[in-house]
Design a protein around this nucleic acid. Structure first.
Lengths: 237, 237
DNA sequence: ATAGGTATTTATCACCTGATAAAAATATTC
DNA sequence: GAATATTTTTATCAGGTGATAAATACCTAT
């Protein structure tokens, strides 16, 4: 046996915790949060009680998994760059979706997102609200500004639906790739381009019709709840 | 108490099994397949061992849930009507998606689909293959025929991706409504119209470019496996 | 009314779950 | 090299799981 293969039986707390969290992301994104701590320990080559030296409860471990996968991946620059009016909206959107899909189109992110979504966990609803409030609503404003509509008038339902359609078209390709597991490489640049073009093309008539009709539904109000991406109610795990 | 409220303590096997399956659909679509048989029984007002008089194992019960939610909802007329060339493709697509979303945009279908998808269950991959082979590929043929392209030449990747984009745009609105649980009614007719228009608008240039370039990727071959929507490998539950 | 049939419950099995406490193994310090 | 400190394991707990067998409660036909 290669002498360099010798792995020390004891690790520093930092290194052990790092490996534990890394494996937990892997494991829970495959098995869901019902996955057992014993099997997780087995895959790490350690015994199950050792997990509890580094995470006080299973819920605590899962919380850190969330943080690592979701929170730390969110880029504040997304919302900032989307609102820099020195370039056409189309360019900004394509650049944004290039970065966004690059951050979230991976097996860990996609699967944990849906596991959490099906469980109705806080982190998931908060994330969707964040996408809605910090990304999609600003995009609607930018679109109005570029087309010369009044930015101050309240957002209409139809405009909001339309921007969600663009978002959904892009996002669904990630679902195909990582949830459906299609047996070939999905071309994301292509779908981003199609989605953005669809949005740009349809925006004028949708905004025009929505603003003309005083009876048209308003988009639901942005959330009042001070939203963070962090907490998970422990009893939901 | 209203005398008509008196419920008999014993039911006929048919009625009991019917109620059990109905509740199981409800229960597993909320909790996922890890949901316990005791809680299921509790919600039915019966004891847990009674379940095993009507379903030999939990896997057997889940299998019947699948069948009720997926298989029995599939309409053969979808594929048939899509290929009747007496009307424009646009009309056929809109009619199809009206019927399709009407069948699958409900909490049971949507949630069970993703629970099964995350577990990698056969039923789910089979379903996706069925959508691909029986719906989306025929749509691509119809589109080529309407635009006057050669229907016999093999399907290209870009055409296939494009039809999946239309499909994804529509499907994603169901995800928003039933997985994200947005707090308002999503307008499906609107998104269907946008999706179909996007597909029709982009088809000509995509097909043209794909057929012109001899190096363009082909779409993956339709599946050879004799696909059914029925079986679930018991050991995967 | 009673007897037979069967739907339903009670009691129980072996196994798995997250979590805790004490013992052991390893590394570090003097 | 002995003493100390800390990582890791062993042993175990209480409670939950799917499933089975035997006992019971209910309905119906006679």
């Amino acid at each position: 046996m290669n002498p360099s293969d010798k792995k020390p039986k004891r690790l520093s707390p930092e290194e052990r915790k790092r490996r534990l969290l890394e494996k937990a992301i892997d494991y829970f994104s495959e098995e869901g949060f019902e996955g057992g701590t014993r099997e997780l320990a087995r895959q790490l080559g350690i015994t199950q009680p050792l997990i509890y030296r580094y995470f006080s409860t299973k819920a605590d471990l899962i919380n850190e998994v969330y943080h690592a996968v979701y929170v730390s991946q969110w880029q504040e620059s997304w919302a900032q760059n989307l609102q820099k009016r020195d370039r056409p909206v189309r360019d900004r959107l394509i650049e944004f979706y290039d970065g966004y899909t690059n951050a979230i189109f991976n097996r860990h992110w996609m699967r944990i997102f849906f596991f959490a979504g099906l469980k109705g966990l806080d982190i998931n609803t908060r994330y969707i609200r964040r996408v809605s409030d910090h990304l999609l609503r600003p995009i609607c404003r930018e679109m109005r500004a570029e087309l010369g509509f009044d930015v101050e008038k309240p957002l209409r339902q139809a405009e909001f639906d339309l921007v969600w359609m663009m978002h959904g078209l892009v996002f669904y390709q990630g679902i195909r790739e990582h949830i459906y597991k299609v047996p070939y490489k999905v071309n994301h640049e292509f779908s981003i381009q199609i989605a953005v073009d669809m949005y740009i093309t349809k925006s004028r008539e949708v905004i025009e019709a929505a603003l003309k009709d005083p009876a048209a539904d308003l988009a639901p109000a942005a959330s009042f709840i001070p939203e963070q991406l962090v907490q998970v109610a422990p009893d939901r795990i």
